[in-house]
Write a protein that binds this DNA or RNA. Sequence first.
DNA 1: CGCTGACATTTCACACTCAAAGTGTCAGCA
DNA 2: TGCTGACACTTTGAGTGTGAAATGTCAGCG
Lengths: 193, 193
Amino acid sequence: MQRTDTSRNARVEAIRRAAIPVFAAKGYRGTSMADLAQAAGVSRPALYQYFSDRADLFRAAFGALLEDQADSAIAALAGDADLIDHLDGYLQRSIGDGWEALAATPHGDELMEAKHEFAADVAEESTRRAQHALRAFLRRRTDSDMQAINTALELLTLSPVGLKSDHPSSAVYRRRLRALAEAAAALLVSPTT
Amino acid sequence: MQRTDTSRNARVEAIRRAAIPVFAAKGYRGTSMADLAQAAGVSRPALYQYFSDRADLFRAAFGALLEDQADSAIAALAGDADLIDHLDGYLQRSIGDGWEALAATPHGDELMEAKHEFAADVAEESTRRAQHALRAFLRRRTDSDMQAINTALELLTLSPVGLKSDHPSSAVYRRRLRALAEAAAALLVSPTT
DNA sequence: CGCTGACATTTCACACTCAAAGTGTCAGCA
DNA sequence: TGCTGACACTTTGAGTGTGAAATGTCAGCG
């Protein structure tokens, strides 16, 4: 059975990986099971052997991607670099890279919608996990009280949405994220009166 | 002629004022010229004597509102209060109050769209004016260089969009704006390495 | 002279049709 | 056993008509 399971998981993984660029290129509604089957190099009915339907496949594909992204962001908090660099790295990896690159595609809005509809729990879990790690990091690396840390967390996690609202170039967006990291660091280092 | 013009301007003003709550309540597409006429207490054809069409009236109504809002925000920068209080006041008045209150209404998104379509130049002019005043204020009140000031400006003007992205209560949103003001102030006081 | 009621025209939302595309599930083949 | 081609069913979206509502512009009234 192990042999079979391993083989099966390998195929699931292959299909999952093949699906991501297809969804990214054509959006959720725009991609058919036939498209996904062709990209994975299998027949359409074979997909139903591994996933119950298109939503299930979508969830599997982007759920894993979001998990990886959260892991990457959390990893950026390790080490003993400058506080600003840590925060900047966290922002870049959790928001600047990965999923957000998809949001810039023609079907970005629709993909966000589909994520919210079909992978909301996975998405929330991974961001919750990342934010939990960030909170622990701030508690470890600053002497601010809990309230100040939570406020900084809100700033760090919510502001990026606005910083992208005028659809800046990738370079500009990254510069803004760094500025946000600097501001949050400054806020935590020199406490409010 | 002065007498006539004065009377005319007074009517224009009255119609303009009466139009705002109607648009706010029913959205742009949802309000008819009949609605606006009724609210202003005149017959529908009379509106065409002062405005060429619905878009023109919309532009006049919200253009003036946006101007007032910008004036209010700029006024918040006067005096010699704490830097944070100035920035906080600016944010509250330019974003937290006024127009943004409309964005929270059922037809908020559609109103934003209409603003962008019919009053884009007025809107941009007023925000440009407010930001210009804010830049001058920061130049006057901090010893940061131009680049740092411009970065802080981006943060201050763009972040609020994100801070509202999870549709927080008004109180929470205001608290976040103040935190943003604190962070920006901290960024400008303790310059980057 | 400014405003109104009325009119012709345009716009809009809704309902319906229908053909093309996609979906999920077979029996049967390797 | 795992996969395929084929089949019945569902969904989708473009096209079309239709009635109600809104628009913009009159001549004419006070």
